[in-house]
Design a binder for these strands. Structure first.
Lengths: 158, 158
DNA sequence: GCAATGTCTATCATTTTGGTAGGAATTGCA
DNA sequence: TGCAATTCCTACCAAAATGATAGACATTGC
């Protein structure tokens, strides 16, 4: 039931970019993100490119360039991002709603495993398809402020 | 969020053995199981051995041998089986209850991703730790009977 | 004694994972 | 105008995981 590093980094990056956006910084470079999340820059670049191709990000090249959100945060569902980077949410394909595939078992209609896994997939989807990037960013921001923790991407104005 | 074939086969096998048990057949051979579920015999054997080592099965060697449950079905939690074969339920380690591990992010206490993944892990655990093998077998059996489908492991008495 | 079965060890091809390296193209700014 | 910062693109790579297969040995029932 694992999320790959690739998926993890993709979500971290999106959340960070969302956070930065909410704090008034609409453009974030890959090196800033990599530093913030301690992710190898080059690896992250590839992931950001994928997020761009998926339509979640736009970018600006050249010096002072970077990435920025291509959609309003409340329209980016975490579940969709995960599906895009990791594949179906369901633990086994025959339990997937968006990527169903017949399995090898002799009688799918009476398969106890499938039944179980459909429940699991629904539980996961219920969370990840309900939460948007906006929700995630909001919660994070609230926590940060409540604890008076240093906000990321707000460097002492210079 | 995938379940490997190994995990899938392990669960299928357990469910089948439970089903057989409920139908009066307390001993099932690997070849019967492999045939029923269309799993490569040798691969299945290795998995059954692992389930045995994990304390879920006992076996009887030799002709007429096979595997049988080592515990009452209602004490076998699906979640534990999955953990044993697949590892932690949580998508990322820092969200795991049974196998927590610090992650590389700079501030775990305010990590939006972790928060999300804790929810996901709880949703999964709520299902898989609540369901026992007995539950799964019971539901399957009920469905089979309701639809008057042919019951497995009850070969026309000879 | 032989056939059926579990047990054990070794091996293996393929895919996935988690990167790294290098450079070309673009842009802002001094 | 040129340099530094940045995205974009291609290629490559080592290690691990995945999903098996092969073969021999041990045990048991008939």
């Amino acid at each position: 039931m694992k999320l790959s590093k690739r998926g993890e980094y993709a979500l971290r990056a999106l959340i960070d970019i969302g956070l930065a956006h909410a704090l008034g910084k609409t453009l974030v470079s890959s090196s800033e993100l990599a530093k913030q999340e301690r992710i190898p820059v080059k690896f992250l670049e590839a992931i950001l490119l994928e997020l761009k191709r998926a339509g979640y990000l736009h970018s600006k090249r050249g010096a002072q360039g970077g990435y920025f959100l291509a959609q309003p945060m409340h329209r980016i569902k975490i579940g969709d991002v995960v599906r895009r980077i990791e594949g179906p949410l369901a633990p086994i394909r025959c339990a997937s709603v968006t990527a169903y595939e017949k399995c090898s078992c002799p009688d799918e209609a009476h398969c106890g495993l499938r039944l179980l896994m459909v429940d699991v997939r629904n539980a996961i989807a219920n969370i990840l398809d309900r939460y948007t990037l906006a929700d995630t960013v909001e919660v994070t921001l609230r926590k940060l402020r409540r604890d008076k923790a240093p906000l990321p991407f707000v460097e002492a104005a210079r």
